[in-house]
Amino acid sequence: MEMIVDQQTIPLDKEGFLKDLNQWSPAVAEQLAKNEGITLSQDHWEIISLLQQFYREFELSPAMRPLVKYVGQQLGSDKGKSIYLLSLFPGSPAKFAAKIAGLPKPDNCL
């Protein structure tokens, strides 16, 4: 699989994750989100930056439970809820948000 952003070919794995994480850019993120049927808002970007912060801190893509906890710690308890993350990234927030943020696929996601 691949996609084209700004005339650049971006290879993806069969689940749509970037093959080369160095190719991530905000424009690439917009396209990755579009592939999942998501249009990125400010609220999405807030979670995407937080995921990237998580990755820098732990060198790990979070599973759902720790992601919810981390969002709660960093952005407050209103946002630290599964339902909030599900509203932004329907289906599997940990997986889709990681994909759009240019992180490796989380190991333990349902």
């Binding site: 060198e59 979070p62 720790p66």
Partner: peptide
């Protein structure tokens, strides 16, 4: 290699 200390520091978030 990935930093092992960073990995262990995620324990708290994983309960």
């Amino acid at each position: 290699q990935k930093n092992h200390q960073k990995l262990l520091s995620a324990f708290e978030l994983y309960g």
